[in-house]
């Protein structure tokens, strides 16, 4: 048992980081898509950002270097991460409050785990003062999950899009938060949490000294970390790709750039499609140049 907990304790953050990194690498190796941005863009100049303008509003824009507010791209996501801005503004099903609670439950859970680790390394004895964060995390998280389960199960427009796996994912989170809450509500729960992490860091988790609920909670947390890259929970990290690399990617090609090289390669890919107007065994470039082609049949 101890060995299993130790192995999972070491492997789970590695799998989380590696899993996300490998997925990001795979996405970055996908072909360079045609530009498909959507405005407003957060890296535009302050004036243009206000109304969704772009450098293409300027005469002879190719001869000018567009003014860019790069920091904007890194500030904008926080509106969503911390406030679920779009869900609040546009979602018609009243899920924002529950979704906020769930997401803050997760953020606070990571923060709490971070505090426990720092405390264990530096022996700062700050955990009791900050234990309110753990309570907040587990309570908010549990309420958020319960609210979302009820919403998904009772609102027809959400229900028909929800599969058993989606409920299972929510249930998994509920067990994570609820086990955490029970763990710290137990007498000495906070200290046991510290003991667990100290043990993990020292390579010796004193299972006999710990209550079952503490062991269970940390076990579920580790499984959660492993599960993130391979499940719906990856929707968080993937936003970097959907926004920064697609919807906010408005930069035109530069001669001699790696983008240009990629495009040149991609034009030589075989088309493969078999529609009546397509030469399946020819490349994209050959198909595009074939402007006189009429239906094959």
């Amino acid at each position: 048992m101890e060995s299993l907990l130790m192995i999972l304790g070491i492997l789970s953050p590695i799998i989380l980081i590696l899993g996300i990194a490998i997925k990001f690498y795979k996405i970055s190796k996908m072909p360079l898509n045609v530009r498909w941005e959507i405005y407003p863009l957060p890296h535009e100049s302050e004036e243009k950002r206000k109304y969704g303008g772009s450098y293409m509003e300027e005469l002879n824009w190719l001869e000018k270097r567009p003014e860019r507010y790069t920091l904007g791209e890194y500030i904008e996501p926080f509106k969503e991460i911390l406030y679920l801005h779009k869900v609040k503004k546009f979602n018609p099903y009243g899920i924002w409050i529950w979704s906020m609670a769930l997401h803050w439950g997760i953020w606070l859970l990571f923060l709490w785990m971070g505090i426990l680790i720092i405390n264990s390394i530096f022996n700062l004895e700050i955990t009791s003062k900050l234990s309110v964060l753990a309570y907040l995390s587990y309570i908010l998280g549990s309420l958020g999950v319960l609210g979302l389960i009820v919403k998904r199960g009772t609102i027809h427009d959400l229900k028909i899009y929800t599969s058993p796996i989606d409920y299972l994912n929510l249930l998994f989170l509920l067990i994570l938060f609820a086990s955490g809450l029970f763990a710290i509500m137990n007498k000495g729960g906070i200290n046991e949490s510290i003991t667990y992490l100290e043990g993990l860091l020292k390579g010796n988790i004193p299972v006999d000294e710990l209550s079952l609920v503490i062991i269970l909670h940390f076990l579920i947390f580790k499984l959660f970390l492993i599960y993130i890259p391979f499940s719906k929970f990856f929707h968080g990290p993937v936003k970097y790709m959907t926004f920064h690399k697609i919807l906010w990617d408005d930069m035109y090609q530069i001669k001699g750039s790696k983008e240009e090289k990629k495009i040149s390669e991609q034009l030589n890919y075989r088309v493969r499609w078999t529609g009546p107007h397509i030469l399946s065994d020819k490349s994209w470039l050959e198909n595009a140049q074939n402007t006189n082609l009429h239906d094959k049949v």
């Binding site: 360079l32 779009k86 690399k245 697609i246 994209w284």
Partner: peptide, 24 residues
């Protein structure tokens, strides 16, 4: 297929895979 759909493969694949069905 990344070759037969290089033009839109990435945005298509990510949109197909990662919707959380919040219907926002």
């Amino acid at each position: 297929n990344p070759e037969s759909n290089w033009t839109f493969y990435k945005p298509f694949f990510l949109s197909l895979k990662h919707c959380v069905k919040c219907n926002t």
